[in-house]
Every structure is written in structure tokens, then in C-alpha cells.
Amino acid sequence: MTDKESTIVLAKDIMTKEVVSVHPDTNLLDVAKILAEHNFDGVPVVDNDNKVVGIVTEYDLINKTSAVHLPTLQVVLRNLPQFKEEESHFQEEILSLKVSDIMNKDPLTIEADLPYDEIIKLFKEHHKVNPIPVVDKEHKIIGVISRFDVLRPFHVLQGVLKYF
């Protein structure tokens, strides 16, 4: 980056390039696991050509899964071993659900050259959205930007982030 350009920060400068994503056929239990293990709010859904076809969030999982399976989920919370005995029916049902059944199929995406202040504006206008996939001209995923990335200046100042 040259000195002249250094004042304008773009999506590609702050995005996370090692993207964790899921496939439309990924099982819901796997999505739940990935979200929990990485502490994500959401993950992009990409097809075999790396094209973004959706996004799936913790909210979607709660909204579309828990509502239907509330009684069973409570049995799990109370007593997992007991659940194992009565699980087969539920297992069939929940394992038949795929990412494509619950994902948002028309997610907000941005391109790599979008300036920082435009990104902030998007987060402000779309308060449900986190993260935002960054795509190239063919709609292939090249990064994601989360609220964490937008707050990077704070993290730098506080010594949480040394470099990025």
C-alpha cells in the first residue's frame, strides 16, 4: 500500500481471508458445532465452485430448529443419557435437515474494494447481518468481514491486536 492510498481502508484490508464456510448439504448438527467451536454468529454457505449461495446464523438455527424441536431439546438439556434411548425418531428428523433448509438464500455480500466507512454504514443499516461475505466478480467468496473486523481500530489501540 502506498502512502497516498493509506488513508482509505478497503474491505480487502480488514477482511478475514481464511474463511470457514459450509456447504448447502451440510448437516445442521455440524453447523451448530462449527458456530460453537469458532464462536461465530454466522457462516457463509458456498457451493462446490466457492460461490456464495447463502448464509446461516445462530439466529436461523434457533428460529428454524428450536421452535420445531423444543420438547426434544429440553429432554437433551435435562438428561442426555435418557435421551439416547428415545432418540431414534428425533435423530432421523434432525439429521434430515440441511443447511439449505434454513439458510438465508439472499445474503448481503460486498466486493473487496468497498471503503471502510461504507462497510460501517452497511452494518448500521442491516443490524441482523454478521458476518458479511466478501465476493469477487463471479460471486466467489474471498473473505468475510464481521463486526469484530470493523472494530479492529479499537483492538489495535487496546493492544488486543498487534498486527492485522
Partner: peptide, 23 residues
């Protein structure tokens, strides 16, 4: 589950896992 979809790792960029950012 997602290896095949993963974007090319960049050089020197931290991973998507937020926890790894902490010094």
C-alpha cells in the same frame, strides 16, 4: 466439512478464529 470450500490461506493473515488474535 468445509475444507474443500475454504479460501486460499493468505500470507501472514490471522485465521478466522477470533481467539487467536490475542497477544
Amino acid at each position: 466439512s468445509y475444507d474443500r470450500n475454504r479460501a486460499k490461506p493468505s500470507s501472514g493473515r490471522m485465521t478466522a478464529q477470533k481467539n487467536k488474535f490475542y497477544s
